[in-house]
Design a protein around this nucleic acid. Structure first.
Length: 253
DNA sequence: GTTGAGCGTT
């Protein structure tokens, strides 16, 4: 793969992994190696790539032999423009098997004599595949935002992102689209078991609330909109449903 | 030819 003639993960026990984010999709390990090797002994550079296309996923892992060199590389290369893109270098937080990493160094080994430790692991092996694999699949397609931004380019330059990509905007879609390749069959399997896509819908409550069953206009037949109205509701409040503007009950479209 | 949050393979 992206190793230097080595198969599989090398000895990461005594290495310090750095996570390099925001690299271009064309940047390869060979491009990053000389860059990081200038600041220390780089043991290995690995760039995860897609199973289907083999394209880079936009980030890389650089393993240093010593922590001080890794630290220096983080300080020196973090924010550096590589291939026209500002990369982000930081210590890896998780290991290949989701081991806990402290300052890029693995502090937990899932190899042996640590079986009980895994039980205490608060998080699953892969924190992302069990989260947005169901609905939030961006599939890393070309974002329409980019086109919008390009179209607006020249009209309003202030509309661009006012900050580095480090701090992702909260209102920006956090769906990372890590579906990759297993999401297809998994989704189908769950579909047969009648999954609950209610949460996937951006407006789940909308489906749950039938608003005011159209056609049925009997005020006594059902309580308001069919939903079980708690007894705490006062008769005075109930008259509100018969107000001239009952459409603004709860659903809004 | 593309995309852009984030954490990894024989």
């Amino acid at each position: 793969m992206s190793h230097f003639g080595r198969a599989g993960p090398p000895d990461i026990r005594d290495t310090f992994s750095l996570l390099v984010l925001n690299i271009t999709f064309r940047t390869t390990a060979d491009d990053l190696f000389p860059l990081f090797d200038k600041y220390g002994k780089v043991v290995d550079v690995f760039i995860p790539r897609d199973r289907r296309t083999g394209e880079s996923r936009g980030f890389a892992f650089v393993r240093y032999k010593y922590a001080d060199e890794a630290q220096k590389a983080v300080e020196k290369l973090d924010g550096k423009i590589v291939d026209g893109r500002e990369i982000m270098v930081q210590f890896a937080k998780y290991g290949p098997n989701a081991e806990r990493i402290h300052k890029g160094r693995i502090i937990e080994t899932t190899s042996k004599t640590k079986g009980r430790s895994r039980s205490r692991s608060p998080r699953p092996r892969y924190r992302d595949e069990n989260r947005d694999r169901d609905c939030r699949r961006r599939s890393r397609s070309r974002s329409r935002e980019r086109y919008d931004r390009d179209r607006n380019r020249g009209r309003e330059r202030d509309h661009r992102r006012h900050s580095r990509s480090r701090s992702a905007s909260p209102d920006h879609h956090k769906g990372r689209g890590r579906g990759r390749y297993e999401d297809d069959r998994r989704s189908r399997s769950r579909s047969d078991h009648s999954a609950s896509p209610a949460r996937c819908s951006p407006h789940p409550w909308r489906s749950l609330s039938p608003r005011r069953t159209p056609g049925v206009d009997s005020p006594d037949a059902q309580t308001s909109n069919g939903a079980p109205v708690p007894k705490t509701v006062s008769p005075h409040t109930r008259v509100d449903s018969r107000s001239p503007t009952p459409q603004r009950s709860d659903a809004d479209e």
